[in-house]
Design a protein around this nucleic acid. Structure first.
Lengths: 122, 122
DNA sequence: TTGATTTATTCCTGCATGGGAATATTATAT
DNA sequence: ATATAATATTCCCATGCAGGAATAAATCAA
């Protein structure tokens, strides 16, 4: 069995950095024409069209016709499965972050307790 | 330019469902031997070893020798980039979930306000 | 040493890839 | 009808895949 198609599911579709870039761009702003993305991404027009086709078959993106151009908009909720999956591992690094945060807060609290600490060592 | 290697980065590594499965299994429990995973996943031993190799070069997994067997453990913090990326899109569906949640809470509140509602229609 | 157990590696194959170039398609304008 | 603009599609290629089968390598046991 060869490697799964990029259009097989969302996980395969977003493995491509360019496609994540497209998603990022589409996430700020409403709908974008292809030529718009070509300029923004510095990619060739066929390349952009192909990436959009992949994202479209997976459902991450939808298309509306506007005259001779095609407007693509993000359908971000298709990314939820990715979020749901990776969210389960958040605890593995928030444990660390928590202790750092707690330490920072403890220090801040100590400083506040003794008033404005003068910058002695300056 | 052909498709990026599965070992190119975390996004490519986790595109494979079996590898996500391995990650899931490793996330509960400490370290697991290869044969252990073979049994749990119902995959062939070479297949498991190859997937583990991919995960290892990307850093998601680390290996310790224990006699003739190799114990693999999860290094989940390598998944943080995925989480960081997809987290930016959470708002696109939590908007929906919020209204659903709010609706549920509103209804619950209304019920509480008028006391235990009798099950009329039973 | 010989044999058994566990894991890694090699060899194979079919197949989808991403990009570039060229071309086809679709729509607008004159 | 013809020209122009915007986008999609086709053809090309080199590459790396995932799985199976077979084999190699590592380690332990007697």
């Amino acid at each position: 069995m060869p490697r799964a198609a990029t259009t097989a599911d969302v996980f395969n579709a977003i493995a491509e950095p360019r496609r994540r870039e497209i998603i990022d761009v589409l996430s700020r702003g409403r709908a974008r024409a292809v030529g718009d993305l070509v300029e923004t991404l510095g990619l060739s027009q066929p390349a952009v069209s192909k990436h959009l086709a992949v994202l479209r078959t997976v459902g991450i993106v939808s298309m509306d016709k506007d005259g001779q151009r095609r407007l693509y908009r993000l359908n971000a909720k298709e990314l939820k499965p990715v979020h749901d999956w990776v969210k389960n591992y958040e605890r593995f690094w928030t444990a660390h972050l928590d202790s750092i945060k707690e330490r920072a807060e403890r220090i801040a609290k100590e400083r506040a307790a003794q008033g404005n600490k003068p910058d002695k060592e300056k």
